[in-house]
C-alpha cells in the first residue's frame, strides 16, 4: 500500500515517488533518497519531523518534505 513518509509506520520502506520540485529532488537524491531506494522510518514527531535511516546514517526530514515522499512497505 502506498502512503507518504509522514504517515507511514515505523518500518522498512521503499521509496516509490518523490513529489517535489527540482531543488527538493536534488537534496533528497544527494542523501540517498531516490525512486527505488530502501529506507527505514525510525521515529516521528507529532506535527514535526520524521527520522529515517538511509544507508548507514540517520536523517531528520521536516514534515512538509516527508509528505512529498511516497513510500510502500516492503
Amino acid at each position: 500500500m502506498k502512503t507518504n513518509l509522514a504517515k507511514a509506520n515505523n518500518k522498512k520502506l521503499k521509496v516509490v515517488q518523490i513529489n517535489g520540485g527540482h531543488n527538493i529532488l536534488k537534496k533528497l537524491n544527494s542523501m540517498g533518497i531516490f525512486d527505488g531506494s530502501l529506507i527505514e522510518k525510525i521515529a516521528s514527531y507529532n506535527h514535526g519531523p520524521v527520522i529515517v535511516k538511509v544507508m548507514n546514517s540517520q536523517l531528520a526530514i521536516g514534515r512538509g518534505m516527508a509528505e512529498k515522499i511516497i513510500v510502500e512497505e516492503v
Partner: peptide
C-alpha cells in the same frame, strides 16, 4: 519557512 533536512550523527 523551509523544511528541516539534516543528518543526525551518532
Amino acid at each position: 519557512s523551509d523544511d528541516l533536512f539534516i543528518e543526525i550523527p551518532p
